[in-house]
Write a protein that binds this DNA or RNA. Sequence first.
DNA 1: TCCCGAATAT
DNA 2: TATATTCGGG
Length: 648
Amino acid sequence: MGRERSVPTPSLKTTSSLLKIQILVVDDDSTSLAIVASMLKTYCPRGIYIYRLLTVRSPLDALLQLRLHQGFFDLVVTDLYMPVMNGIELQQQVNEEFNLPVVIMSSDDKKSVVMDCLESGASFYMMKPVNQNDLKNIWQCAVTSKQGKPSAIMEGIPSSGEKLPIEYINSSASVPQERRDVKGSTKKLKRKGNREDEDGTTTGPKKAKVVWTNSLHNRFLHAISHLGLDKSVPKKILEFMSVPGLTRENVASHLQKYRIFLKRVAEKGNSTIPKDSSEKDLRSTFANGLASMMLRSLEQQKQQRLPEFVSMQKMGAQIQPGRGETVSLSPDSPNFTSLNFPNHHQLPLPLDQQQIQTLPSPDKICNIPTASGIEDGVVAVNNSSPYLNNGQDNYVKTEMIGDGLGQKNFNAGDMLSGINGFINWNCNDFSSSVPSMGNGSFSNLVQTGSAIPEQFSASLTGANPESSSILPIAENQDGIGNGPEDMDFFNLISDGSTLDDILNYLQLNSDFDEILSHTKSPYQQQAAQVFRNSNFSASNSNQPKVSFSASNSYQAQVNNTPSSGLSDPNSYQQVQGGGGMNFNGNENLVDAYQPSFIQDPETILDPNLDGMYSADNATEGIQIQACGLAIQDWNDEFFNSLFDDDIF
DNA sequence: TCCCGAATAT
DNA sequence: TATATTCGGG
């Protein structure tokens, strides 16, 4: 029944010509996870075959999967804000261990956040809700990765000797160079659907089009920020980029386009041009790198021309994110550009002269400070970053639990959970507790009152304290995590709601016209089928069971909704795969980020697996709910059926 | 001769 | 549209 609409035969030749892509999606928010996964499947472009799409809700699970199956995945798509480990940290870990491109997504629209992600090496930053344009970038990252081009991952400024190849696509319409000079005569070569590129008139290497991937463009931006916008000429950029195969002409062409882009943006900053296609621009490659580039450029110019800067300030030509939108720098100076930033991108620019003078270089947030302690204690993290504190003390809150043995990672992501607060340092191992000084490398850590404050101490370490500074995003994270909305969705898909109900929910709660326009997609039908087939029951021995009768494998979330107050009603635990899974009723389900049971990925696609999730020894009163999301083996038929709509 | 960059072609 | 190519001029 998955094919009620007429499915014209796709214009695909054979499956073997498709690029098999395997993606790992990480998001602690189940709703978001489901949506992203769904969109990836729904909007898979021609030529790409999603061989496997694995979703996990914990970064640790993600790493586990990646380690278990090296070379298995081509791309990681991760949420930014997650407990234990945030998207940036995950990205860096993934880059380090697996050299895979990582796309970070978040509903956070702060420019500083976008910048942080990109500077830390993310291939792409994707705003939630995800749209089709973003997906294009995802696919490009995936394809680039699949083709084994390491340049899909771009880390910082190229060092000497480090070279990155460029990605090419074969230009099907490319004409041999020798022919091109005789322009008048090329007309006869012109064909409408010039499909055959095997004219082979030239034996030389085919002229390939340079594809300015994100990584390549990032390198381009790095070059410009290094050289300065005014001194950026094709040759110098080319040299700095140090990309084999890239020509000066390539750079010149790109530079031309880039300048046009800057100009257009600048014009928009001054005039009031209707935002017709602004959205598109914002999500463009250029816009993505803009924040980073501008910040570097500003930093550079600030150092070089501080007096000018200061006087400019006094003259009132301030660097002002005017209502968070416009950054105007002396428009008359060739060194400066007036740029308009979208309101969801905000540069952490200093506002007063003093800050400008002392502003350190914003480094990437790659350090994960650690600290150790023996006893319970409370310490405060003082953020002295001029980017954040606005002249006042700025505390960020986090909670950590020490193991009593000393080392405890302090994840940058932990710092995102609150604003003015303290770090609660708890020691679990009281038996071995010996009053002693904790030590570690918390950045900007300041001791404050606690039960046993004397036993804690922290020191500033690291060459650049800013490099491990507090993330400037200590705000609420509504919409992320297990909010009521998530439960609504959860309940919706758990109680056998119809597909229309689900889609209606999506429509009401998200901007998902795209999804709605594909309500009949086979994937969604399949998913809905799994929802309906979910059975929930509780045995008389208080052993709630959840069983699925799906013929394919799936992912399930087991929701713990106790009648007693033993655990968080909003908590749930994730299990994946077919087959049975047991968990203890007194297992701590409160933490939604417990290591999940994950079936061996090799068997995930086994279509014969029927799933049975059961809870043994469950605490009385606990009800178990579960829902399944189909993770279907995308056979050719199913895959091809998606190609009805020409999406890309 | 090099090479930049606007204009133009694909 | 994105990238390549051309071409006048510094």
